[in-house]
Each structure stands twice: as structure tokens, then as C-alpha cells.
Nucleic acid binder design. Structure first.
Lengths: 112, 112
DNA sequence: GACGATGTGTAGCGTCGCTACTTATCACCG
DNA sequence: CGGTGATAAGTAGCGACGCTACACATCGTC
């Protein structure tokens, strides 16, 4: 999949992976890979900064866990994040509808 | 609609407006407004540079027409442009499918 | 002991849509 | 005649953001 098509849609995807419960960054990334059949396979240099951005924006919160002496940073949706996710969903619907209508296969005149 | 969600999808939309025949920039913009029910309403500062970019890329070609003493720049799909439009279509399909699957409405607990 | 998977992170770059502005002709209305 | 809005094309500069390319650490496996 081409690179930058994500622009502006990444936040919603990240938030959605946290909807079912807290996850750490690596697991968020994996959830996107798995849930998209490998189509959305983001480099870590995309995921981690994006999570930090979302935290700065107050849409997710994080805490550190120590598992087997290894540090894991666990992210969780905030209330604002839940609302933002809803907004992203409807925004996506609207956008996808508009683009599909414009780009979508034309109903060819029956003669073709 | 939020601003930057277009990122990476604009080219396909522009190309698609030229599929049915040549148009000038202003008409391209109008076609997007009309075809999206006003949802996609781009400033001219987005449309014209994007068309120039597509022409530099060889996906469209332009010629000047003089109508009533006014200059109009008419754009037209090239062969490469037609191929690119096809590629954008399938790329959009793939992307939209993946995002919808990930973001898609969860079966809400009946209470909402 | 080397390698890959797991896990987190940063610095810097490039793309691209946007804001804000300019220039010009024409139709319409008062 | 003057003002306003639609039509028509354009540029300069900015900011957001995903990407590349790294660095670092632990664990299990060969």
C-alpha cells in the first residue's frame, strides 16, 4: 500500500486498537497488521511518535509496567479518546462515502 | 470534513474528474464539490498546484484556450494518467477495505 | 555466540494540502 | 458609473505528519 495514504487516518486506527482494552505499542502495531491482513504494516518510527502525540493530546494515557524485568508502556483510551474515536469513525464514513462516490466505478451506459 | 484526510487521495480524485473528458481547473474543482454533495470543497490553492504536479508527473496534459478573450487552461488525461487512475482506484479499494475493517462499527451493546 | 523476535525510542527529511494573497474578465444591480 | 460576486488562474510560505534510518535492550533458539 502506498505510503502516505494514511495521512489523517492513523489516529483513528490507533485509537480503535485500544478500544477493547489497554495495549502496549508493539501490540498496537501488531493489531493493525493482523486486523488488516498485513496491508497496514507500519514502521515503529510511525507508531511510537503517533502514540506520544495522542497522549500529548489527551486521547490516551500510559503507564509503565515491568514484565520479567522489561519495561512495557501500556496505553489506554481516555474519555476524550473514546469521543475522538467516535468522531473519527463518522468522519471516516463521510470521507469514504464521498471518495467512493467520486472515484467509484462509473455506472456505464448500458450499451457498453 | 477535517483538512488533511485527503493526503494521498487527491490525485485520484482529480484524475477521475478528467475521465469523462477534458476540463479546466475551475471545472475540476466544481466537479468535486458537486459530486461529493459539497463535502469535498477544495481551495484553489490546493487544486491548481496539484494539477501542475500531475502534469509534471506526466499524468495529465494541458493546453491553453482563449474563450471570449479569457485564458482557460484545459487539462486532459494522458495514457499514463489513465493507468494511474486505475491504480488509484484499486489502491483506494484496498485501503478503504482495510480501514473500514479496523475502524468499522463494533456491534454496540444494545443500550446506546 | 550469533541471530531474530520483542519492545521502545529519536533525529531529521520530504511531501503535500492549506492559508492568504494577487490578477483579470464578465454579468448584474443600483 | 461603481460595487459586488462569479468565473478563472496562479504563487509563496507554512505546518502537520508519516517515513527512513538509526540506537538500545532483553529473551529464546540454533
Amino acid at each position: 500500500m502506498r505510503a502516505d495514504v494514511l495521512k489523517g487516518h492513523l489516529d483513528g486506527l490507533l485509537l480503535s486498537t485500544l478500544e477493547d482494552g489497554p495495549r502496549h505499542g508493539y501490540a498496537v502495531r501488531k493489531a493493525l497488521v493482523d486486523g488488516s491482513g498485513g496491508r497496514i504494516d507500519l514502521p515503529t518510527g510511525t507508531v511510537y511518535p503517533a502514540l506520544h502525540r495522542l497522549e500529548r493530546a489527551g486521547l490516551i494515557s500510559s503507564r509503565w509496567l515491568t514484565v520479567d524485568g522489561r519495561q512495557r508502556r501500556i496505553y489506554e483510551l481516555t474519555t476524550d479518546g473514546r469521543h475522538a474515536l467516535g468522531a473519527e469513525r463518522s468522519s471516516w464514513q463521510e470521507f469514504a462515502t464521498a471518495v467512493s462516490a467520486l472515484l467509484g466505478e462509473k455506472p456505464w451506459p448500458a450499451t457498453t
